[in-house]
């Protein structure tokens, strides 16, 4: 299993645990008197689950298992893979921090955090598809 896949899958497991922990907190009754910003973490919960866990797990397995391109460069440009991993995770974490900040204090001017988060995650997906697209093919038979 390549190093990048190990990072993807271990990160995915951490996000799954974080998403489920957040789900418990979000399910607490109003009498728990949670801070205001917690209320704005519902979308972050969904995205920790679907981007952090599901999509990241799929990315890791694709990078590992899809047919290689050539023996010399089996999985394409590894730098692109690491760039996609970094952008996806920084973008997602920025969302988890930024969304409750913007929700609880819309006047504070943190809106740019969400725009940057959106751009980083979008770039991560574009780079991953560029990397993986040539590997959607028949098994490599040399040559």
């Amino acid at each position: 299993m390549p190093s990048l896949t190990r990072w993807y899958i271990k990160s995915a497991l951490i996000y799954l645990a974080a998403a489920l922990l957040l789900a418990v907190i979000l399910a607490l009754p109003p009498s728990a008197n949670l801070p205001l910003f917690i209320r704005y973490l519902n979308p972050a919960y969904f995205h920790l689950f679907l981007v952090g866990w599901v999509t990241q797990m799929i990315f890791g397995v694709i990078y590992w298992m899809f047919p290689i391109i050539t023996r010399a460069q089996p999985r394409g440009n590894a730098h692109l893979g690491w760039a996609s991993y970094g952008l996806l995770n920084v973008g997602l974490l920025l969302r988890v921090v930024g969304e409750p900040l913007v929700g609880a204090r819309p006047e504070a001017g943190f809106g740019w955090l969400l725009a940057v988060s959106a751009l980083l995650q979008w770039l991560a997906a574009v780079i991953f598809v560029i990397l993986a697209w040539p590997r959607v093919k028949e098994k490599y038979r040399g040559g």
Partner: peptide, 20 residues
């Protein structure tokens, strides 16, 4: 992959729209 890009494009616009 095409749906991944489409979904992330729409999602990025929605998230950015929340902030700006």
């Amino acid at each position: 992959f095409i749906y991944l890009l489409s979904g992330f494009t729409v999602g990025a616009l929605l998230l950015a729209h929340k902030g700006l």
